[in-house]
Structure formats: structure tokens, C-alpha cells
């Protein structure tokens, strides 16, 4: 199955926020929900400046921390993208803490983040943000094609930006948003090495199944054992009572003998 990805070319992005607006309009986001934020970045001292915009959005990590912590499966991976099914979200907000990019927000008591316009893209369309981006900073397609495009674009801007690089090829297991970065990740407020703590894997892969499994097992074991043990105890009680009766009888007999 093909993996899909976005191309996000931060060298081209001009900060117009058309993507953010298209996303809200096309996805009918509830008031307060916003999947894309443009955050101005500035470095240096006047007049020696560099800068641009961070296009802050879900990066669709292959190794998605949010999916790992999501207890209900509301967040899940599909086609290389991180989907969100708000119907099963309970708003525990573990995803907001787990995300190394600080992306998901709780809106209306449930998690809120980009799901790569699941319905439209599956019907063969393009995500709303990609469709409208006037500066051609956004593309969407098969990940290997997107990666090739990203590398080509980085080569094309290297004369202008010697530090240009592709970000997201391997970060966090490979992002579903492949970024053409004109500068170091830090210059765009991106973690150089986004990490998912190992414990997250333990939690989802060990603790959760273990919890359900061991609880089930204990119920099963005790269920069976209960019948046997209860019988044993009844038997034991009966024996004890018989023994006591015997003892009393013996005692009565002894008294009688005396």
C-alpha cells in the first residue's frame, strides 16, 4: 500500500495563511479549532535578518507518539498519515502531551488536529490547504514522489540557502509532511531530533494489553478456581462440623462414662 505525504516548502511559504483558512472552511472546523498556524520566525539583529514562517501543523510522524498514547484508537495510522476519528475520542489529551511537535489541541472536549482531509483525499481530491496554496509551498501525493520533489527543491535553493535540507525524511520514523527547510530546524522552531520516549511503546504495547489480559486472566482463573475452592471449603466445613459433633459426642460419652 502506498504511503502518502505532504510537501511543505518553507522556502516558498510567504505566510499568507490561505492554507489555514481553506482548512477551516473546507473541514467546517468548530469555532476555535485550527489545524494550521503560521508562526513568524526572525533571527538576527536589525538590519542583518533572516526569517520566514513556521507552518505549524500535524507532521504525520510514521512513529507517531500521539497514536501510541491514544488509548481509544481515535488516532491511528493509515496510508502513512495520522488520522483522527473524533467519534471515539474521549478527550483524555494524552496526545497533546505526547506529541513532540506540540500539535494536537483539545477543542469541544475532543482532540483536534489535521487528518489530511481523509474524506476528500480518499475520494481522489487534494487536501484543502494544498489546493489553495498560492505559493506552491504545499503538495500532496505518494511519499516517494514527494521526497524526490523535496530533494530537487532543496538542490534548487542551495545557492540561496547553503544550510537548506530536507526535514522529515527520517525524523520521528519519517514524517508524512516532508519539509524543505531553508535553514537549520531550530531556525524554524522545529526539534532537530523529534523523539518519542521508549516508555510510550511500553505503555501501549505492554501495559495496555497486559492490563486487559491479566485482568481477564485473573477473572478466568478465579472463576474456575472459585467453584473448586468453594466446594473444598464447604467440604472442609462439613468435615469440621462432623468432627466437632464427634468430639462433642465423645466428650458426652466420656462424661457419661465418668
Amino acid at each position: 500500500m502506498a504511503l502518502y505525504a505532504f510537501l511543505l516548502d518553507l522556502s516558498r511559504c510567504i505566510g499568507c495563511e490561505a492554507c489555514a483558512a481553506a482548512c477551516i472552511a473546507g473541514n467546517e472546523l468548530p469555532a476555535g479549532a485550527q489545524y494550521i498556524h503560521l508562526i513568524e520566525q526572525t533571527h538576527g539583529v536589525f538590519p542583518h535578518l533572516t526569517g520566514g514562517f513556521k507552518n505549524h501543523r500535524c507532521y504525520h510522524c510514521a512513529d507517531a507518539a500521539c497514536v501510541k498514547v491514544c488509548p481509544t484508537g481515535a488516532l491511528y495510522k493509515e496510508d502513512g498519515l495520522t488520522r483522527l476519528n473524533r467519534d471515539v475520542c474521549i478527550g483524555c489529551a494524552y496526545c497533546t502531551d505526547a506529541c513532540p511537535f506540540n500539535v494536537p489541541q483539545i477543542v469541544d472536549g475532543r482532540s483536534s488536529k489535521c487528518d489530511a482531509c481523509a474524506a476528500t483525499t480518499k475520494a481522489g481530491g487534494q487536501p484543502w490547504c494544498v489546493r489553495t496554496c498560492p505559493s506552491d509551498a504545499l503538495r500532496y501525493g505518494e511519499r516517494r514522489e514527494i521526497l524526490a520533489e523535496a530533494h530537487a527543491r532543496v538542490e534548487a535553493i542551495r545557492a540561496r540557502y547553503p544550510k537548506a535540507r530536507v526535514y522529515g525524511e527520517a525524523e520521528a520514523g519519517g514524517l508524512g509532511v516532508v519539509i524543505v527547510l531553508p535553514d537549520a530546524p531550530e531556525a524554524f522552531d522545529l526539534p532537530a531530533n523529534p523523539q518519542t520516549p521508549l516508555l510510550l511503546d511500553v505503555w501501549q504495547k505492554v501495559v495496555q494489553p497486559a492490563a486487559v489480559g491479566l485482568t481477564g486472566l485473573s477473572v478466568l482463573v478465579t472463576g474456575v478456581a472459585a467453584i473448586i475452592a468453594r466446594r473444598n471449603h464447604m467440604k472442609e466445613l462439613a468435615e469440621l462440623r462432623a468432627q466437632q459433633a464427634q468430639t462433642e459426642q465423645n466428650a458426652g460419652a466420656q462424661e457419661g462414662e465418668r
Binding site: 499568507c16 490561505a18 483558512a21 472552511a25 467546517e28 484543502w128 489553495t132
Partner: peptide, 25 residues
């Protein structure tokens, strides 16, 4: 619900800015 650029239009060429996207709003 949704307003998009008309791809045949020499100005929008199928795209819109944030304000155009907010026409319905």
C-alpha cells in the same frame, strides 16, 4: 460551504487567499 478558485480564471488559477476562502464566513 466552500469557495474555491476557478482553475480557468487567469487571476485565481484555481487558488484563493485566506480572504477568498472566508467568503462564506
Amino acid at each position: 460551504y466552500k469557495i474555491d478558485g476557478n482553475p480557468a480564471d487567469p487571476k485565481s488559477r484555481g487558488m484563493l487567499c485566506a480572504r477568498g476562502q472566508a467568503g462564506a464566513s
